[in-house]
């Protein structure tokens, strides 16, 4: 080792310099366009893959109320048409889980603005349809999907606005 420590260091530098230069020369077209900012940011390219495995985030009552009041959220009721007609969060759209599951690539018929959050809910903590629906939406490519786990019962008991009928 000590015999030619400096020699090894020089050799290492040389190997790295040469192979890195070859690599840069090999990819010069890509690097030039990346330098000019013409290539998609790699972080963005990686983002859908990261989202695909992300679980929908749960939200609490207050957070949902704030988003609804600020008109930044689209509410989706994952329950059946009948349950929806009997009572739902004011302003919510009905998307029963079974219907969404039939058409998982395009589950939503309503237009959702790109920045808006989607909040799914059903019949409270014991009901998992809202989580299943949210997962379908995440898979379909919607970026901001949340689950309101308290659901209709918590909302109603808190005295927040509910509506009847419609679908």
């Amino acid at each position: 080792m000590k015999k030619n420590g400096l020699g090894t260091v020089m050799e290492i530098l040389l190997i790295v310099a040469i192979s890195a230069s070859v690599g840069i020369a090999w990819n010069r077209t890509l690097l030039t366009s990346a330098w000019r900012g013409e290539v998609a940011r790699p972080a963005e390219a990686a983002a859908p893959a990261a989202n695909a495995v992300t679980e929908p985030m749960p939200l609490g009552l207050m957070q949902v109320k704030e988003l609804v009041d600020a008109k930044q959220a689209v509410l989706l009721d994952a329950r059946s048409r009948t349950s929806f007609a009997e009572g739902h969060l004011q302003g919510a759209f009905n998307l029963p889980l079974e219907e969404a599951a039939k058409n998982p690539s395009r589950p939503l018929k309503v237009q959702v603005p790109a920045e808006a959050s989607i909040i799914t809910y059903c019949n409270g903590f014991s009901c998992h349809d809202s989580m299943e629906l949210a997962k379908i939406l995440v898979k379909a490519g919607y970026p901001n999907v949340y689950v309101y786990e308290g659901g209709f019962p918590e909302w109603r008991d808190a005295g927040y606005p509910v509506a009847k009928g419609g679908a």
Binding site: I15, S19, I24, W26, L31, P42, A43
Partner: peptide, 14 residues
Amino acid sequence: YFGSYLTAAALPFV
């Protein structure tokens, strides 16, 4: 941003 591309270009060759 550019560092990722530079690494991607050079590292495999090393």
